[in-house]
Design a protein around this nucleic acid. Structure first.
Ligand code: SF4
Ligand code: SF4
Lengths: 137, 137
DNA sequence: TTCAATTACTACTCATAGGTAGAATTTATA
DNA sequence: TATAAATTCTACCTATGAGTAGTAATTGAA
């Protein structure tokens, strides 16, 4: 019951970039060192974020990455969706999900509340909310 | 953000057994067919449940499995613990977890509530609660 | 005693996430 | 133009979860 490593890394990478919104471009070396994420793995993840249009990249010397839009417009859930880590509406704790109405187990109703809270948290929290709270993550 | 396949199977297997509390022993073939879980994988999981003392097994002809205690005394969280799928108190959404007090990100407080609900759900729900609600899972 | 039905053990295969290596490509600057 | 600094691409390696195969051990019943 955890987000994937990749999703966690991606969120932290983007939050760091949002936090340094004064610098126009941030490169992979800086991110890797600041966040202690393996350089090669970080660039691999970043390329996916570029393809998903959350990040724009500038190649070549003096190149780097920057957010493609305002930090307040990038939600955590946008990131989770890229790595198939988002919580689906019909997602069931037991991996079944087709029981409904009259026929449901004891977990069914109990799962609703935390599920909705998690979805809300992911959908409402933007990079701006996460970054710049005085703590590097 | 899902329980592992193994945990999901284990919960369903034990819930099925709790549901048939009149039959003293239930064998792997019946479980496999009723729950559509691959036979060999099911026996592998079951052996772990036996080692964890949630199930007692009887080998040989006319053998099978039975719960080691009352269904109401086996909580979902007991099962998750075996497969390291339980939610830890200090578990952080971003895999960090050492930020505290003054220094926390926007997800920190928001994560508390669903986390506690999930822990409560897993710790309070017993096999008895899950089984026998009129729906085979 | 023999046999069939059962769980347990050992050792594999397969799929996927996590991570690494090296070369190719791009581009500003010297 | 040549070089160095950067991203991107292709291909791999490693660890783990999921699942399978075959055999050994156990035991009730014919
Ligand atoms: S009733 Fe239980 S098993 Fe069925 S979809 Fe709801 S939570 Fe999942
Ligand atoms: S502040 Fe954020 S990153 Fe740090 S432990 Fe809390 S949730 Fe995790």
């Amino acid at each position: 019951m955890q987000l994937s490593n990749t999703s966690q890394y991606a969120i932290r990478m983007l939050a760091y970039m949002a936090d340094k919104k004064d610098s126009p471009l941030i490169n992979a070396t800086e991110l890797s060192e600041a966040l202690h994420i393996p350089y090669k793995f970080l660039t691999k993840i970043m390329t996916e974020l570029v393809k998903a249009d959350l990040v724009v990249s500038v190649r070549g010397r003096e190149g780097g990455y920057s957010l493609s839009k305002k930090a307040s417009d990038i939600k955590v859930d946008d990131i989770l969706n890229i790595f198939h880590d988002s919580i689906q509406d019909k997602q069931c704790v037991l991996g079944i999900g087709f029981c409904n109405g009259m026929c449901k187990c004891a977990l069914h109703d109990q799962w609703m509340e935390p599920k909705i809270l998690l979805q809300k948290m992911f959908r409402d929290s933007s990079l701006e909310d996460i970054a710049g709270k005085g703590c590097k993550i």
